[in-house]
Design a protein around this nucleic acid. Structure first.
Length: 794
DNA sequence: TTAGGATTTG
C-alpha cells in the first residue's frame, strides 16, 4: 500500500512501523543506493503544487525537515523529495505542510538544486514502481483521527512514446533498441555518464545522455542490439535535434537483444515493475531488430581482425603492466589466434603483473593492447582473469624495426593494438559479468583453445587461470569501483588477495555459504559504545554473554559476605596455603580471610603470589587484584572451600578478570587447586581446568554496516576481531590506552561528523552463512582474514 | 554541471 495514514492516538510513529527496516538519518544517506530496508522520517516544510510529466504521470515535490530534538541550521537537515506516478494523487490530497511522514523504498539521487536552495546535496525519489510507501501522521488531532485509508493503487500503467512522436520539453518513457552506446565513464562534472542511441520500429532515433553519481545505476548495456526501457527521460533540443537526458526518477531496464536469450531484465534499480505488456514489448523489439540486421555489429575475434580497422574485443585479461603515465599494457586472449605478425610491447618483467607461467603458456594466443589516457585508470584497476569487452581497439599496422625488417618482408608488417584516449565511437573498457552470454561463449572458446597436453606445469597453470578466475561482474568493477581501487584501503587482506572483488549487491543476491572479497565503506557500526563491543564467549556451548556488571558483582559479593558471616566457619591453615585474617572496620565489622598459596617459586613477591580471598567487597577485590598476581575469590561452605557464583570472576590474574560459563562448568572444591602447587602452573587455563570451570573467552563483537553503493550489508566482526584491530579483547577491557586506540581505529574507519563520501574504503574478506532453522533461517555475514591497515600516529 | 556518438597520431 503506497500511502498509509497513521494515527497519533495509536502511539509514536515508530511503534506503528513494522517491516520498514531501520531509521536512517539524512546525513547517513548514500548516493545512488536503493533504500529498501531503511526508512526516513521528516516533517513537510514545503509542499509544491503537483504537475504532470509528458508521460502523463504526476510528480509532487516536497521539502522535508529532519525532526530531531536538536535544532539544526545544517543544509543536511532539509531534503527535497519527489514522488512520481499514481502515488502522487493520494499524497497530493492527504499530505499537508507540517505533517510528519515516513518514507520507505526510496532512491537517493544527487540534488541539482542544492547550491540554489541550500538544502541537502541529495534528493529522495519515490514511485509506486519501486515499491515506495509513504506513511503520514497528520499534525492536527482531527485529521489524525481519520480512518486509516488503505489505498488500492494498482500497478502503474506506463505509457511509452514511439521515438518518432517525441516533442521537446517533456519527460517521457521510451523503449528502444541500442544502436550505439558508450560504456559508463566519469564525466568532467560530478557524475558518471553514458550516452546511448536507441531506435525503434517507428523509424525514430533518440540520442540519450544518462548521468548518475553511481555508475551501477546507469543502464547495464553490454552490446549494440540490447533492448532498453527508460523511465523518465526529458526530451530537449540540442543542435537542432531532439535528445533525451535522464530526469529525476530516471530508471532503466536492459535486455539481451538476441531472440534466443531469456527475457531477463538487467535493472538499474533494486526493484522494478515488469509486466506481461513489457514482455511483449521486448519480444516485439527483438523481432524487429533481428529482422533489421543493420543495427547489429557481428563480434570480431582476434582471428578475424582486419588491419587498420577498429573492433570490439570480448576477451580475458591474462596480464597487465603500467608502461608510463599515459599508457597501460593489457595482455588479453579470446581463444583464437591473430593471423598477423604482432608487435610485442617491451615491458620490464618487474612491471608485468601476472603469472609468468601463464603468460609464457599463452604467449601464442595473447595480444598486447596498449591503453591510453582516460582509460588507464580503468585498466590499472582491472583484476587478472576478468572478462572484458574492449570497445574500439585500433588494429594498427606498423613498420618493423630495422633489425626485423628482413623478417618482416617475409611475414608482412606487424600489427599493434591501441585503445586510444577519449570516448569517441564508444571507446572504453567494460567488465562483463560471468553470467553474460558473451562470456559463456568466450569461456568455451578459451577452454577449447587450451593445449591438449595437460601434463606440464604450465598447462596446469593455464587450467588454473581459467577455472579459478571466475571474473567479476560488471557491477563488481564499475568505473566507480575502478577509481576506488586506486585509493588506499584502510584495511588489508591477510589472504585471498587473488580473489576478484564482488559487489555487495551480488553478495546479497547469492545464497550462503560463500566467501567473497569486497571493497566498501564502513557507513555505520554497532555498538557505538566500544566497551559494549567486548563480550564473553563460551567455546563449548557457543553462547555469547555480557561481561558481568560491577554493580551485579558487588551485590553478589555482599550476599556472599552475609552468608559467610552467618556460617561463621573457622579459618584454618592447610598443607598448601597459609591463612591470614584481616579485620575490616566500618559499620559492619567483617573478617576478610586471605589464603596465601604456597608455591615452589624462589621469589615469593606479592605480584607473583596466588591468594584465595573470602568475604571481600568489590572494592577490596579490585585492591587485591592490583597488589597480587592471582586472586581467586572463594567462600566456605560446610568446611569446604568453594567458588562463588560464576557471575563473580573465578580468577583475577594480572588485572584480567576471568569468568566461567554457568551452563558448561562443573565447579570443583577449591582444594583441587592443590594439584597445581606440585607443578607450580598457575595459568588461567590450568586453574580453570582443575576447578572444573569452562573458561569464557573475551571476544569483540561488532556489527559493521558496509556499503559500496550497491549495498548496504551488515557483517559481524568477532572471532577474528582481535587480529583485525591488533588488540586483545581481554586487554582492552582493562587498558585505557587500548580503549583509546580502538576508538581511534573506529574513528578512522568510520569518521564521525563527516559525510560518508569522505569515508575510507575497506578491503574485506566476507563469508556468508546461515543461522536458525526452517523459516527462521537467515543469512549472516562475517568479516574474516582482514586487518586494520594501521596509521602512523597509533 | 557533466555530454551532447562521429577515431590517435602513442
Amino acid at each position: 500500500m503506497p500511502l498509509q495514514q497513521l494515527r497519533e492516538s495509536d502511539g509514536p510513529i515508530e511503534t506503528q512501523l513494522s517491516g520498514c527496516g531501520e531509521w536512517i538519518e539524512y546525513d547517513k544517506l548514500r548516493l545512488g543506493s536503493a533504500y529498501v530496508d531503511k526508512y526516513i522520517k521528516g516533517i513537510i516544510s514545503v509542499k509544491y503544487p503537483s504537475h504532470e510529466l509528458g508521460t502523463g504521470e504526476k510528480v509532487l515535490k516536497m521539502a522535508l525537515e529532519e525532526s530531531t530534538s536538536q535544532p539544526s541550521t545544517s543544509s543536511q537537515a532539509s531534503i527535497n523529495t519527489f514522488i512520481f506516478g499514481k502515488l502522487v494523487g493520494d499524497c497530493d490530497s492527504i499530505l499537508k505542510q507540517g505533517d510528519t511522514v515516513v518514507l520507505t523504498n526510496f532512491q537517493v539521487c544527487k540534488s541539482p538544486s542544492a547550491s540554489k536552495d541550500g538544502r541537502h546535496a541529495f534528493q529522495l525519489e519515490l514511485s509506486d514502481e519501486t515499491g515506495a510507501t509513504v506513511f503520514v501522521c497528520s499534525k492536527t488531532g482531527q485529521e489524525s483521527a481519520a480512518i486509516i485509508r488503505k489505498s488500492k493503487v494498482g500497478m502503474q500503467d506506463y505509457t511509452y512514446v514511439p521515438l518518432n512522436m517525441l516533442k521537446g520539453g517533456v519527460t517521457v518513457n521510451v523503449y528502444g533498441v541500442v544502436k550505439f552506446f558508450k560504456p559508463p565513464y566519469r564525466s568532467k562534472g560530478t557524475d558518471y555518464c553514458t550516452t546511448v542511441t536507441i531506435v525503434d520500429p517507428s523509424e525514430g532515433k533518440l540520442h540519450c545522455v544518462i548521468f548518475n553519481g553511481n555508475a551501477d545505476l546507469l543502464p547495464k548495456i553490454y552490446k549494440i542490439g540490447d533492448v532498453v526501457r527508460f523511465h523518465r527521460v526529458k526530451i530537449q533540443e540540442f543542435n537542432q535535434e531532439l535528445q533525451a537526458i535522464s530526469a529525476p526518477g530516471f530508471s532503466a531496464l536492459t535486455f539481451d537483444g538476441a531472440l534466443e536469450a531469456p527475457i531477463q531484465p538487467r535493472a538499474s534499480s533494486r526493484t522494478y515493475h515488469f509486466t506481461s505488456t513489457d514482455q511483449r514489448k521486448v519480444e516485439e523489439l527483438r523481432r524487429w531488430a533481428n529482422a533489421n540486421i543493420s543495427v547489429f555489429k557481428s563480434a570480431t575475434k582476434l582471428s578475424e581482425v582486419k588491419p587498420a580497422g577498429y573492433f570490439d574485443l570480448t576477451c580475458q585479461l591474462v596480464a597487465k603492466a603500467v608502461v608510463d603515465r599515459s599508457a597501460v599494457l593489457l595482455k588479453v586472449w579470446d581463444g583464437t589466434k591473430c593471423p598477423h605478425p604482432l608487435k610485442q610491447v617491451p615491458v620490464d618483467r618487474s612491471a608485468l603483473e601476472g603469472d609468468l607461467g601463464e603468460i609464457r603458456g599463452l604467449s601464442q594466443l595473447t595480444v598486447d593492447v596498449l591503453v591510453y589516457d582516460n582509460h588507464t585508470g580503468v585498466a590499472n584497476s582491472l583484476k587478472l582473469g576478468t572478462y572484458l569487452r574492449i570497445h574500439n581497439i585500433h588494429a594498427k599496422l606498423v613498420t618493423a624495426s630495422t633489425e626485423k625488417q628482413n623478417e618482416s618482408l617475409d611475414r608482412g608488417p606487424e600489427m599493434e593494438f591501441h585503445l586510444h584516449g577519449g570516448t569517441s565511437y564508444g571507446r572504453g573498457i567494460m567488465v562483463l559479468p560471468t553470467d553474460c552470454r558473451d562470456v559463456q561463449q568466450l569461456k568455451q572458446s578459451l577452454e577449447s583453445a587450451l593445449p591438449s597436453n595437460q601434463d606440464s606445469m604450465e598447462d596446469l597453470a593455464l587450467m588454473e587461470i581459467l577455472n579459478s578466475s571466475s571474473g567479476p561482474s560488471a557491477q563488481e568493477i564499475s568505473p566507480d569501483c575502478m577509481e576506488r581501487c586506486h585509493q588506499e584501503s584502510a584495511t588489508v587482506l591477510t589472504a585471498h588477495q587473488h580473489i576478484s572483488a564482488t559487489s555487495l549487491k551480488e553478495v546479497l543476491d547469492q545464497t550462503a555459504p560463500c566467501k567473497y572479497r569486497i571493497r566498501a565503506k564502513l557507513v555505520n557500526y554497532e555498538p557505538k559504545a566500544l566497551y559494549q563491543s567486548v563480550k564473553l564467549y563460551c567455546p563449548k556451548c557457543r553462547t555469547m554473554q555480557e561481561i558481568p556488571d560491577d554493580d551485579d558483582i558487588d551485590a553478589l559479593l555482599q550476599d556472599v559476605c552475609s552468608a559467610d558471616a552467618a556460617t561463621g566457619s573457622q579459618p584454618h591453615d592447610a598443607e598448601w596455603y597459609e591463612t591470614t585474617i584481616w579485620e575490616q572496620g566500618g559499620q559492619r565489622r567483617r573478617q576478610i580471610i586471605v589464603r596465601f598459596v604456597k608455591t615452589n617459586r624462589l621469589q615469593r613477591t606479592p605480584e607473583r603470589s596466588t591468594i584465595l580471598v573470602e568475604s571481600v567487597s568489590l572494592n577490596e577485590l579490585y585492591r587485591f587484584s592490583e597488589q597480587f598476581g592471582s586472586v581467586i575469590p572463594t567462600t566456605s561452605r560446610t568446611d569446604r572451600l568453594i567458588l562463588n557464583d560464576l557471575s563473580i570472576p573465578f580468577l583475577i590474574q594480572d588485572g584480567k578478570w576471568h569468568y566461567g560459563c554457568r551452563q558448561c562448568s562443573d565447579p570443583q572444591p577449591v582444594s583441587a587447586l592443590q594439584s597445581l602447587t606440585r607443578e607450580d602452573s598457575w595459568e588461567p587455563s590450568a586453574i580453570a581446568k582443575v576447578l572444573g570451570i569452562q573458561w569464557l573467552h573475551y571476544v569483540f563483537v561488532m556489527k559493521f554496516t558496509l556499503d559500496d553503493g550497491t549495498g548496504p550489508l551488515d557483517a559481524f566482526l568477532w572471532d577474528e576481531a582481535e587480529r583485525f584491530f591488533g588488540i586483545s579483547a581481554a586487554e582492552v577491557v582493562i587498558s585505557e590506552v587500548l580503549q583509546e586506540k580502538l576508538t581511534r581505529i573506529m574513528n578512522t574507519l568510520c569518521p564521525p561528523r563527516i559525510n560518508p563520501e569522505g569515508f575510507p574504503w575497506l578491503e574485506c574478506c566476507l563469508k556468508s552463512y546461515y543461522v536458525g532453522e526452517g523459516l527462521e533461517q537467515k543469512t549472516c555475514y562475517q568479516v574474516f582474514d582482514t586487518t586494520f591497515a594501521g596509521f602512523e600516529d597509533i
